[in-house]
């Protein structure tokens, strides 16, 4: 199927700013879905609130645009009711890890078969550029006029510790890798997390003097390295890209089928 056939053109133009990385993530995601040969009817997309969450409206899947931070909780209800569906949950960094942090770690702990995409631009874009739990120290934001003193999460480490069975990271610069990782995440049976470093030139780039979209993407190129590379040993400040965790564990909906079996045996 042509990529554009996955899109609800009726609802374009989209509302993202010029240079925003979210469209690149959308593109990579659709290529992954297309390469997997999936039909539009077998995919459910559940999102929360924020710039990234608007991705669901533009796609011709079953789309559920919910409330801030709770996309994974809604998705859990859909998935447990209809385990045969493929659920993709795009979230922003604030949506997934500030207000939605509890749902994030518990979805990981349950190992329920959802594909979580954390579109990390290190800022709250929709509300106009406040710092997020992934901004890190020394970042300028509308709520940090004297620079942040807050430490940030490492999404991959957090997901790993919480029990996610597939954890990966890429960037909007590395679109080939991103498509491949998204494909693997969708195929993975269990809770999968793909963190995508994506640029917000409007609020993060401008205020932190990182230039426009091109300069910010170049920064991703220059400051990331494949997982386990020699470059990382020489320069620990580099951010690793690739697959961090890929393991098999009992999936939640399948495990619940055993509960039903046990309950019915004792009937």
């Amino acid at each position: 199927m042509a990529i554009k056939d996955y899109i609800r053109e009726r609802f374009f133009p989209h509302m993202w700013c010029p240079g925003c990385g979210h469209g690149i993530v959308l593109n990579s995601l659709l290529r992954a879905v297309e390469e997997l040969g999936m039909s539009k009817n077998e995919i459910v997309m559940v999102s929360g609130i924020g710039c990234s969450s608007r991705i669901s409206g533009y796609l011709d899947f079953h789309t559920l645009h919910t409330i801030h931070g709770r996309a994974l909780a809604f998705a859990t209800g859909v998935k447990l009711s209809r385990p045969e569906l493929n659920l993709i949950v795009p979230m922003g960094d604030g949506d997934a890890l500030a207000i939605g942090g509890n749902h994030f770690i518990h979805a990981a702990r349950r190992n329920i078969d959802l594909t979580a995409i954390v579109m990390n631009n290190r800022i709250y874009g929709m509300t106009g550029g406040q710092f997020s739990p992934l901004s890190g120290c020394g970042v300028m934001a509308t709520t940090a006029p004297f620079a942040t003193v807050d430490q940030s999460f490492d999404v991959a480490e957090l997901a790993k510790a919480a029990g996610a069975t597939f954890v990966a990271r890429s960037t909007t610069y590395h679109v080939q890798q991103l498509t491949k990782l998204l494909r693997e995440a969708i195929l993975h049976e269990g809770f999968s997390v793909v963190e995508v470093l994506t640029q917000c030139p409007t609020y993060f780039g401008r205020r932190n003097k990182q230039g426009g979209a091109v300069e910010m993407m170049k920064w991703f190129k220059d400051n990331t390295t494949p997982v386990g590379s020699k470059a990382k040993q020489e320069n620990p400040a580099l951010i690793e890209r690739g697959i961090f965790v890929q393991k098999e564990m009992p999936e939640y909906c399948k495990a619940y089928d055993q509960v039903i079996e046990r309950a019915q045996k004792g009937k």
Partner: peptide, 9 residues
């Protein structure tokens, strides 16, 4: 989360 899950279901 409980409220959200029942809405999805």
């Amino acid at each position: 989360a409980s409220m959200c899950a029942i809405i999805g279901a």
